[in-house]
Design a protein around this nucleic acid. Structure first.
Length: 429
RNA sequence: UCCUCCGUAGCUCAAUGGUAGAGCGCCCGGCUGUUAACCGGUAGGUUGCAGGUUCGAGUCCUGCCGGAGGAGCCA
């Protein structure tokens, strides 16, 4: 029966058996300190030469970084240990003496680490990030389940573009052309008409030559879609969900945030309601701050950062010009030149983490948009059906998981937020 | 696709146009409380590739390949 390091505090004074890898080792001739990790945490194992058999002493001396082993010993609370506990090792069973491990405890370059991503994820920092990612996912799903959303899985292989703008990954579907999904939204609209409140959670693909700290080729989105929900309620759902997520991570991931050196003070502020400014107000704000910006343009990364700096929590930018937004967004009835949409900009320069809108429910207007956007009508026949057979006001949004993780964890690049990032020029490992 | 920067030992980096080096890691030795431990020693190189300038190129020039940061596009 194995004990895990994560539960070690329940076993003080007891003899336990761990399955572990050797993370690092220090020795002083007659005493050895083995830094052990088992995925749940790290603990220092102590061997004193005069107190263990020569076999065990020799086995420990011979261990290399990342060697796998079973260790038995007595758990002891110790103030000198970073985790607060140590293991006085009484028995050691080496599973494998590892070959020379490429990743040392010193600094490495990005390319080298990315080439060894399959090993890099063993490091304390990467473990912490992946733990936080999992807790963010859990918090989102807990909140949506509690609010009576139903999980619905849209297809990954699609016959055509969902939005028709960006580059898609092309593949063959027997004799037909097919594309990897860049958004499940249109399918989620169909699902919302069947189940009321739904959400999807899955990978999406963008064949764009984007090369920044905020972009991945393959990334995960959470896309809720809600029948009978208007623009205003859409925003309330978003801010309540995100507040829950941030507070959940603060509560559950203290050690991980500490490992990452994340300043948690800015996260404490992230509670609903979030500030809202209209696109018009954002343009004024930018001009007031001395940035050149014309009404009708889309914001770039520097603009988003400037706007975000003005607030102490995420900020909604609403009512963008109709011409620069997707075809399915509903125009503001009092101002048709803008749409009922909102992008949520994260603080600290992490950029847009949510894009959402109320959708067009009027079949005649949707028909118009197909023509304006030069979309092939027959590809969207099923989507039009949603407006022909009992159309209702409905809204939805998409949250980018990796950008959200990067922000909450305080990382400087989204490539560390996913186990095996797919980026421009990187498909390995 | 565009702009800027960078490719030297397994890794991180030095080296006025003039004998390719250090730290870490590996291996050997030392050390009873180490915290990226420390101390001593050994081994380790087609300086990304191809051309050019020069008496002489890691260093200067041209092209290519690879990478990083940013822009655009987006989440």
């Amino acid at each position: 029966m194995l004990t895990t390091i994560g539960n070690i505090s329940d076993h003080v004074g007891e003899s336990v058996r761990l399955g572990a890898w050797l993370y690092n080792k220090r020795s002083s001739g007659k005493i050895q300190f083995l830094q052990l990790r088992d995925g749940t945490g790290f603990i220092q194992g102590v061997l004193v030469k005069s107190k263990v058999s020569p076999d065990i002493w020799e086995a420990a001396s011979d261990l290399t970084q990342e060697s796998s082993l079973y260790a038995e010993g007595t758990v002891r609370a110790d103030e000198r240990a970073p985790s607060g506990y140590e293991l006085d090792i009484t028995s050691l069973e080496v599973i494998q003496k590892a070959e020379e491990y490429p990743i040392s405890l010193k600094e490495h370059g990005v390319e080298f680490l990315m080439d060894h991503r399959h090993l890099w994820i063993r490091s304390p920092r990467q473990r912490a990030v992946l733990r936080i990612r999992a807790e963010i996912t859990r918090a989102i799903q807990d909140w949506l389940d509690k609010e009576n959303f139903t999980l619905v899985d849209p297809p990954v292989l699609t016959p055509s573009s969902c939005e028709g703008t960006t580059n898609l990954f092309h593949t063959k579907y027997f004799d037909e052309d097919a594309y990897l999904t860049q958004s499940g939204q249109l399918y989620m609209e169909a699902a919302a008409m069947a189940l009321g409140r739904v959400y999807s959670f899955g990978p999406t693909f963008r064949a764009e030559k984007s090369k920044t700290r905020r972009h991945l080729i393959e990334f995960w989105m959470i896309e809720p879609e809600m029948a009978f929900v208007d623009h205003e309620e859409n925003l309330r759902i978003q801010e309540n969900m995100l507040s829950h997520v941030v507070q959940h991570v603060l509560k559950e991931c203290g050690p991980e945030l500490k490992t990452l050196g994340r300043d948690t003070a800015p996260l404490e502020n992230v509670k609903a309601p979030f500030p809202r400014i209209t696109y018009d107000e954002a343009v004024e704000l930018l001009n007031r701050e001395g940035m050149e910006f014309q009404w009708g343009e889309d914001f770039g990364a520097p603009h988003e950062t400037k706007i975000a700096e003005t607030f102490d929590r995420p900020v909604f930018i609403t009512h963008y010009p109709t011409d620069i937004k997707a075809f399915y967004m509903k125009p503001d009835p009092s101002r048709p030149e803008v749409v009922l949409c909102a992008d949520l900009i994260a603080p600290e320069g992490y950029g847009e983490i949510i894009g959402g809108s109320q959708r067009i429910d009027d079949p005649a207007l949707l028909e118009e948009r197909f023509i304006q956007h030069r979309l092939d009508r027959k590809d969207y026949e099923w989507y039009m059906d949603l407006r022909k057979y009992g159309t209702v006001p409905h809204s939805g949004f998409g949250l980018g998981l990796e950008r959200t993780v990067a922000w909450i964890a305080g990382l400087d690049h989204v490539r560390e937020t996913i186990p095996f990032p797919r980026m421009l020029n990187r498909l390995y490992p």
